[in-house]
Every structure is written in structure tokens, then in C-alpha cells.
């Protein structure tokens, strides 16, 4: 019991986490390349053509995992933010910071691919639908976090202020999601319902899952690589950084 606790906290120090992250980055990069490669191949060549939506539906294999990731990453950020505020660990703030750009990219990707899907399917690039609107707001939350982080020079304050903002945002996400939904239902029925998951073929489901796992691996790899640079940047004047092989070179 005690040993396990110590093990966990051992890696909460940037000095011990840095080499661990260094070992994990190549593994997850490889995983991401393989999974996304297989997923893309399946989504283009294996998955059958949809009888109603034709070939255009294939963008959903990127769109849905990206939308999932954009939401998951915010939750993970909130987890790290809460951990950082409670235990006052430096690494948590760095992890939150490292995840944010990836989350913002996935939110943007989800909106972008959604627009590409919406044009042939709905006949419009953008609908003020509940899901679209809340995804857009999620993107704004990411951008707000990044802007706040960027404008505070003192990294300790930046981490804690950012953590608080992320936590406030996570409280707001369900409110935003439901408020947007209710706001729309009063005006008119939703243009299209996205609940076709259960009717989806097995191949399509597997393809989507593989893509989602690939995006997970990509997220982990990129976040760890980014956290390594953040650690180097912030701990630049410590002895352990100056003793690193890649720094001395």
C-alpha cells in the first residue's frame, strides 16, 4: 500500500517524470501511426459505402473520434487541474498546459470536418444545432485557457489561474450543453439527429474505435512530448536539467 503511494508520487516530480515521458513518447507515437494508419485504410477501403449517405459519410471516421477527444481532453485537463490545485504539484499544471493545444486542435478539427460533412448531407456548412454550438463554445474555452496561460509570466500563477479557469469551465460544460439543446428545441426541431450509432454496421464501428484509439495514442504522445519541452523550459536553471545528455550536447 505504502510502496504504491510512493511510486505514484515519485513521478509527480518533473525530474523523474522527464525520462519516463521520454521513454513513453516513441511507444505512443508508434501506436498512433499504426492505429491511425490501419483506421484510415479501413475507413477508406474496408468500410462499406453507406446506402443513404454514399461515400461522403467516411469523414465521420475522423470527425467523431476528434469530437470525442476534444471533450475527453477537457475532462483530463480538469482532472490535472484539480489535482494540481489540491496537491500543489508543479507537474499537473504542466500537463494541463501540454494538453490544451491538442484539445483545441481536436475541437477545431471536429468543427472543420463537421462542416465538410454538413455541406453534402445537410446542404449547409453550419447549423446552429446544439452539438455544433456547444463544440464551438468548447473551442472558445480552450482558447480562453491558452490566452490566460500565455499572458501570465509567472508560471506558478499561470498554472493555478489556468487550473481554476478549467475547473469553472468544466462545471459550465453540462450547463452549456443542455442550455443550447433547450434553446434549440423551442425554436424548431433539430435538423438531424446524430443517434445513428446503434444502427451502424460492425465494420464501421470497429473502424471508428480504432481511429479513436489512434487519436488517444496521438494525444498521449504529443502531450508527453510537449510536457517534456515545458519541463525543460521551466526547470532550465536546475542542476538535473544541466546534467541531461541532450542539454549538455
Amino acid at each position: 500500500m505504502n510502496a504504491r503511494l510512493i511510486n505514484w508520487f515519485k513521478f509527480s516530480s518533473p525530474a523523474t517524470f522527464y525520462p519516463l515521458a521520454g521513454k513513453m513518447v516513441p511507444i505512443f507515437t508508434l501506436l498512433a501511426v499504426v492505429l491511425i494508419g490501419v483506421g484510415l485504410y479501413m475507413s477508406f477501403f474496408v468500410a462499406p459505402t453507406d446506402y443513404k449517405q454514399g461515400e461522403g459519410y467516411r469523414i465521420i471516421f475522423v470527425h467523431v473520434p476528434a469530437a470525442w477527444m476534444s471533450m475527453f481532453i477537457y475532462l483530463i485537463m480538469a482532472f490535472w487541474a484539480g489535482l494540481g490545485l489540491v496537491f500543489n504539484t508543479r507537474l499537473s499544471g504542466m500537463m494541463t498546459r501540454a494538453l490544451a493545444p491538442t484539445g483545441a486542435i481536436f475541437a477545431f478539427l471536429a468543427l472543420w470536418t463537421g462542416a465538410f460533412w454538413g455541406k453534402p448531407m445537410w446542404g449547409t456548412w453550419w447549423v446552429w444545432d446544439a452539438r455544433l454550438t456547444s463544440e464551438l463554445i468548447l473551442l472558445f474555452l480552450y482558447l480562453g485557457y491558452l490566452a490566460l496561460q500565455g499572458s501570465i509570466d509567472d508560471t506558478r500563477r499561470a498554472d493555478r489561474a489556468g487550473a481554476l479557469l478549467v475547473l469553472v469551465g468544466v462545471v459550465n460544460i453540462p450547463i452549456i450543453y443542455y442550455s443550447v439543446q433547450w434553446w434549440n428545441t423551442l425554436h424548431q426541431g433539430a435538423t438531424i439527429s446524430m443517434d445513428n450509432g446503434s444502427k451502424m454496421g460492425v465494420t464501421m464501428l470497429w473502424t471508428m474505435l480504432i481511429m479513436a484509439l489512434g487519436f488517444w495514442a496521438y494525444t498521449i504522445a504529443v502531450a508527453l512530448a510537449r510536457v517534456r519541452s515545458i519541463i525543460l523550459e521551466r526547470e532550465a536553471d536546475t542542476t538535473w536539467v544541466s546534467e541531461l545528455a541532450e542539454v549538455r550536447r
Binding site: I137, L148, V180, W183
Partner: peptide, 12 residues
């Protein structure tokens, strides 16, 4: 940038 996204439910 921070506050306007949080204002959205009130606006709606």
C-alpha cells in the same frame, strides 16, 4: 475571452 463563453447560458 475568458468570461463570454461562460456567459452563454445566461444569454440563451
Amino acid at each position: 475571452l475568458l468570461v463570454l463563453p461562460l456567459y452563454i447560458p445566461v444569454l440563451i
